[in-house]
Design a binder for these strands. Structure first.
Length: 461
RNA sequence: GUGGAUGUAGCUCAGGUGGUUAGAGCGUCAGAUUGUGGAUCUGAAGGUCGCCGGUUCAAGUCCGGUCUUCCACCCCA
């Protein structure tokens, strides 16, 4: 016996019901994106490693799936022990491609490469899978879909407002509550500046980002351990712990960050953003959280993070502004903002909240039973007629027992079954059975299309 | 990448201290009902106990390794 087949860890197969639900999410998100004037685009699953490496921080580089060169790649490796004792050195010699880690960096590459073919400010959306060599956990996969929307080539904060509204629209349509946290990297930069440790930016923000998960003492401990003075730590903690409503927090920070030009700029930006958001009539919570940091290295301004209100699963959407991402690819002075919806986590949330509409999996509207060759050929004509009228119809492919055919229709959640046997064939009629009520009636084939179109009822499960 | 738990039929799980032929519920299939599904009854099929090795007269059970899934850290959608 062969070994049981399997798929790589952290990857998944999707059954028809799951696909129906996933497509519902993609459809909803796409509808909102196009409503805001964004256009679709795609990039390849694999990129050159030179495009990917060094953009996501040290940890990110480790999580990139590398693709082995084809052919006799080993003969090109110098016969030197350093290559065979160090995986990183070896992989640099035998891999030149990798699977994309997110959609933002490939997008930056795309913008630089096609700068003369696109119109700025460029608004695009991109829905594709990404891969991370992470250890799988709940809500954490090695292959998952991101739904990105970005505006590049404009530093107006109106773009941030548009993105915030997109977030609000998407979760309103998907019918569950989200909590959106907003901060600004400039506020964080100002924070380490007034604490006198501007060179410790990355270690400080990764530490305070954990405030939500662990208790305050751990974060303080981590900061001290990273070499900050007690005074600097106190300063940082006082900034992250300002309380009140959004405007209250902002005015408190105006005091605390007064000495930092960058910090004040961040506060000004946030002030503008919240002023507009408050009059936007949003349905979800938008909260200024000075402790929100986000790991990715390339953010420079506003940062967003969205969590589901009633499910523990990590962030379901995130993003921010990046000023220099295209620079490494040779195009400077172009600022962009974007957010990314995590379709797989949104799926998990909706499954837990039972937020999917019931009627998603209704493929076939009517199935014709098969009583034999003559009946089947008559059915096929009617099936063709219905399909022309836009009604999805199928004929059971074998003259199996009634029970078997009915069970099939029942399982597939088909609304109607047409029975055409010897008598119906002779009379040129069809016996139409409603699979929900169980009632049946005899009608002419010509009446069928009209009757099915009129009846909007769909069985739900 | 570090630490911990887990793995028995398609699914959910039983199987004290090793001892003949590994069980249940659900599901599947068949029949009761030769042109009628979702209810009920009857019956059947389905397992190299994750994989490899070791200890033992004897391993689902003990030991080691490996893989999977899950949890924590790290990081993140």
């Amino acid at each position: 016996m062969l070994q049981k087949p399997s798929i790589p860890k952290g990857t998944r197969d999707f059954l028809p019901l799951e696909m129906a639900r996933r497509n519902y999410i993609f459809r909803t998100i796409t509808e909102v994106f196009s409503l805001y004037g964004f256009l679709p685009m795609e990039t390849p699953a694999m990129e050159n490693l030179s495009t990917l490496l060094g953009k996501y921080g040290e940890e990110g580089d480790r999580l990139i799936f590398k693709i082995l060169n084809s052919g006799d790649f080993i003969s090109k490796v110098p016969d030197d022990d350093v290559y065979f004792s160090n995986s990183n050195k070896l992989s640099s010699k035998i891999c030149e491609k990798g699977l994309r880690y997110d959609l933002t960096v490939p997008f930056a590459r795309f913008v630089v490469q096609h700068q003369n073919e696109i119109t700025f400010p460029f608004r695009r959306y991109q829905i594709q899978p990404v891969w991370r060599a992470d250890r799988p956990q709940k809500g954490r996969y090695r292959e998952f879909f991101q739904c990105d929307v970005d505006v590049i080539g404009s530093d107006s904060l109106l773009n941030e407002i548009e993105l915030a509204r997109i977030i609000d629209d998407v979760f309103s349509r998907l019918k569950f509550k989200a909590a959106v946290k907003i901060n600004n990297r400039k506020v964080l930069a100002g924070m380490v500046e007034v604490a006198g440790v501007p060179e410790k930016f990355i270690p400080v923000i990764t530490a305070i980002d954990k405030l939500e998960k662990t208790d305050r003492d751990n974060v303080v401990g981590e900061l001290l351990q990273k070499g900050l003075s007690e005074e600097a730590v106190n300063k940082i903690m006082s900034i992250t712990e300002v309380s009140g409503d959004n405007t209250g927090k902002l005015s408190a920070l105006r005091e605390l960050l007064g000495k930092s030009e960058t910090g004040m700029k961040g506060i000004k930006e946030l002030g503008f953003l919240f002023k507009y958001l408050e009059k936007s009539g949003l349905e979800n919570e938008f909260i200024f959280d000075p402790a929100l940091a986000r790991g990715l290295d390339y953010y420079t301004g506003t940062i967003f993070e969205v969590k589901a209100k009633d499910v523990e699963i990590g962030s379901i959407c995130g993003g921010g502004r990046y000023d220099n991402l295209t620079e490494v690819f040779g195009l400077s002075g172009v600022s962009g903002v974007g957010i990314s919806f995590g379709a797989d986590r949104i799926y998990d949330v909706m499954l837990q909240l039972n937020a999917f509409p019931g009627e998603l999996l209704t493929g076939t509207r009517i199935m014709f039973t098969n009583f034999g060759e003559d009946e089947a050929s008559y059915c096929l004509d009617i099936v063709g007629m219905l399909r022309k009228a836009g009604i999805s119809a199928e004929l059971y492919p074998e003259a199996a027992k009634m029970k078997k055919q009915m069970t099939y229709a029942d399982r597939k959640n088909i609304s109607y079954v047409a029975l055409i046997g010897e008598t119906e064939l002779k009379e040129r009629t069809v016996t139409l059975k409603n699979m929900v009520t169980g009632s049946q009636q005899k009608i002419s084939p010509e009446e069928l299309a009209g009757l099915l179109q009129e009846d909007t009822f769909l069985p739900g499960r």
